Simulated assay, not measured.
Amino acid sequence: MAASRLTVTAGLGALRPGHPALDLAEEELRDELKTARLRTDEIRTPSTELTKGWLSELAADAGTPAAVAGLVRVIHLWLKRDRRRSLTLTRPDGTQVRIEGEAISEATVRDAVARALGEPDDPAEG
């Protein structure tokens, strides 16, 4: 069965969670997902680092074709703004798909989201 909810974890080069530049990039992504009217939730967990505070992850629903298309578009535009940006999409079962690189095409993002959602590449497989 395909997943319909993904945890979206932003990356920015070698910056660690909690770095102000990464926090700003994550906030931008969160705002763009909301602007696109995609249903999102913030998941907060205690920091496992040697620092106080919380780490937050963004969970996005992708249960309809329109939601998937919106998610692909927002991710693609967000990644294009800075070559150091990356995203990790995590399914509820822990399966992860990472999107990173220079000049990432929308088709590449679409394929990565489809893999993260567990959609078969070949209709005969599924």
Rank of each mutant, 00 (worst) to 15 (best):
D31F: 07
P17V: 08
R39L: 07
E28T: 14
E26R: 12
R37W: 05
L15Y: 01
T9K: 13
T9D: 14
S4N: 08
R16S: 14
L24E: 12
V8T: 03
E27D: 15
L6M: 04
A10R: 08
K34W: 05
T40S: 15
L15F: 04
A10F: 00
R16P: 04
T35E: 06
E32F: 02
E32L: 08
L6G: 02
E28M: 10
L38K: 04
G11K: 07
D31Q: 11
D41N: 10
E28R: 11
T35Q: 09
A25K: 05
P20M: 01
L15T: 05
V8S: 07
E42V: 15
A36Y: 00
S4W: 03
L22W: 02
L38F: 05
D23G: 15
R16T: 14
E32I: 06
R39F: 02
G18E: 01
L33N: 01
L29A: 10
A10T: 08
E32S: 11
T7N: 02
R5N: 09
E42T: 15
L12C: 04
R30K: 15
P20T: 08
S4F: 09
R16V: 09
D23S: 14
D41V: 11
L12P: 05
E42L: 15
L24K: 10
A3H: 11
L33T: 02
V8N: 00
L38M: 07
L33C: 04
D31P: 00
H19V: 03
K34Q: 15
L12G: 06
R16W: 06
L38S: 09
A10S: 12
V8G: 07
I43E: 10
G11T: 07
L24Q: 13
